[in-house]
Design a protein around this nucleic acid. Sequence first.
DNA 1: TATACACTGAGAACAAGTCTCAATCCAACT
DNA 2: AGTTGGATTGAGACTTGTTCTCAGTGTATA
Lengths: 177, 177
Amino acid sequence: MTVSRGPGDKTGGDSLHGLVEERLRQAAQRYTSGRRALVDLLAQAGHPLSIEDIAEQAPRMPRSSAYRHLVDLQQAGVVRRVAANDGYFRFELAEDITEHHHHLVCTYCGQVLDVTPTPAFEQAMNSYLASLTGSSGFVSDDHRLDVLGACATCNRARSARRDQALPRATPQPAGRP
Amino acid sequence: MTVSRGPGDKTGGDSLHGLVEERLRQAAQRYTSGRRALVDLLAQAGHPLSIEDIAEQAPRMPRSSAYRHLVDLQQAGVVRRVAANDGYFRFELAEDITEHHHHLVCTYCGQVLDVTPTPAFEQAMNSYLASLTGSSGFVSDDHRLDVLGACATCNRARSARRDQALPRATPQPAGRP
DNA sequence: TATACACTGAGAACAAGTCTCAATCCAACT
DNA sequence: AGTTGGATTGAGACTTGTTCTCAGTGTATA
């Protein structure tokens, strides 16, 4: 498997913007500069972005516009909204635009990394999902696997000083999560 | 695998309350009637409950108390808070009190069901998680798998009238999700 | 009984995400 | 070039799940 921090395989070159433009057109929407900037951000990040991340990297874009663009792009099948464990939404490009992946969620620093599963594991996953329908009647359209743990950096810090407990990321988010 | 709607294997009888009381004691907290009522609710549900579910089934309990109990129980390692795809939190008993399970999330009616994975799949999962450490340096403590799709009821409705699109659960939650 | 501290209820406060509305942009047509 | 209709945008008000505050109540220990 590969851990990526850049755009997925299918997002290289200009095919990404062509694809997005086509999907927006099918939804009777335009591919304006604001929306293009958002898609660029998501493609370059290579991992789900929070609205805070987006505001940092695109300070000129009002949040209401960012949220609206994300809704529009989601409805056009370009963006997927994922609920992280801290209760805040994060946004990423749809999997059929990048590629199927899972998330490595570091519970110490809060970082989310993308990881592409091995074919062997995806095969096991698919036969498992198929068996669900037989036993429960549940028909699966999609799945999401989040692996919780410590990223390489935090793990090094953790083993460097085993006597001290590392602080966890956002244990009790203040205000409305 | 089994799809459960009742308490997990380890929650039968009175061992559940003894275990919870012990964990609360270790956190210097009491196992009061309000907290016991919440634990009973979660154990009987057998699937993650929203604050709305809890308010329905325990109308006498103020929400502020319910939230506070859930925070306390979470800190004592009794309850786990899960972020559903609609942006609302749901609450369930910790896995080491019930048993390891995954979630079937119906994207039509919003229902969340628990499902216990097959040993074969869990074995594939474990070797996959182990391989992550080698390739990325990420050390996994835990994982969560959510299967998105249509539950048996919604799937029947979906195939009964293929010409009509079924409404999706909370596609655009009004106000603050 | 006295004391200390944990627990509870009621409601205020907070903030992520959504909605409203007036202004602006853009494509298509004349 | 000018018009027109509809999509897009920015600013800010609004909604509402969740957390915080505070005064009052319960409870264990001495």
